[in-house]
């Protein structure tokens, strides 16, 4: 695997008053890696991810995302990442084409580029006939594939996925992971935050946050053998059971 680092994180912390939401986390993510970022609700996942996406400033520590500093170069970070969450991704009352155009425009692509790429994208997804349909009318599986395609439309270096496949049917979920694998194979780094353990199993490496700290960081199989259990569920259970914090 390419050892180029796209995310580096060194003793990164975020303090709210006396409370360490994120407490000195340190990890690196390699280019083209599918990195799972796990933790129970309230463990500090979201806060950490916000700092990495350039949405909030760390209290201390260092971090770079796509080579840019999280303190000084937030605007560059935002241009080089994509984001998709299961809850919100696309506008239901805009057509497929309009959604693509909108998000392309948001990321500063020029008209010609948008036109070329959206044509290509619709062709790859096999949505030629549906291109003018409202996104709200699409079946969930297609919506999700489209949402992911839109998230990587501007060819970001890293794409952040927030619980991308929760509640989705197994077949669609597989198709979705196909796309993620494909994107990773082209060198896009995939950063998945989730508390669904079966999503975690797909990742090359995962980190598990408990009470603001990264308590485990390894490949799923190594973690399972380290804790001598059979599933990631059990790994997580052992780590998170002792957690003192939990909130929504």
């Amino acid at each position: 695997m390419d050892e180029e680092k796209v995310i580096t994180c060194k003793s990164l912390s975020k303090k709210f008053g006396d409370f360490y939401a994120v407490n000195e986390i340190t990890f690196d993510v390699n280019k083209g890696e599918i990195f799972g970022f796990l933790g129970a609700n309230g463990a500090g996942k979201t806060t950490a991810m916000r700092m990495l996406c350039g949405l909030s400033f760390p209290s201390s520590g260092e971090a770079t995302v796509a080579g840019f500093d999280v303190y000084k170069q937030q605007e560059f970070i935002k241009k080089n990442i994509g984001y998709m969450s299961q809850k919100f991704s696309l506008y239901e009352n805009l057509s497929i084409l309009e959604n693509i155009e909108f998000f392309g425009g948001v990321y500063g692509l020029d008209r010609k580029e948008i036109k070329e790429r959206s044509g290509l994208l619709i062709q790859t997804l096999g949505l030629e006939k549906e291109a003018k349909k409202m996104v709200g009318e699409l079946p969930l599986g297609w919506k999700q594939k489209l949402a992911f395609s839109v998230a990587i439309f501007h060819r970001p270096k890293i794409v952040f996925l927030d619980e991308p496949t929760g509640g989705v049917d197994p077949v669609t979920r597989r198709q979705f992971w196909d796309m993620i694998y494909e994107a990773a194979a082209t060198g896009i780094t995939i950063f998945v935050t989730t508390h669904y353990m079966d999503e975690a199993e797909y990742c090359n490496r995962i980190s598990i946050m408990v009470d603001g700290k990264v308590e485990a960081l390894d490949s799923p199989s190594n973690l399972k053998s380290k804790f001598s259990v059979h599933s990631m569920d059990d790994v997580f259970y052992q780590l998170a059971r002792g957690a003192s914090r939990s909130a929504d």
């Binding site: 129970a40 609700n41 929760g166 509640g167 508390h195 353990m197 569920d233 997580f236 259970y237 998170a240 059971r241 957690a243 939990s246």
Partner: peptide, 10 residues
């Protein structure tokens, strides 16, 4: 158990 963490689900 939707949206609930592993420990609570168990």
């Amino acid at each position: 158990t939707t949206g609930v963490d592993v420990v609570s689900r168990k």
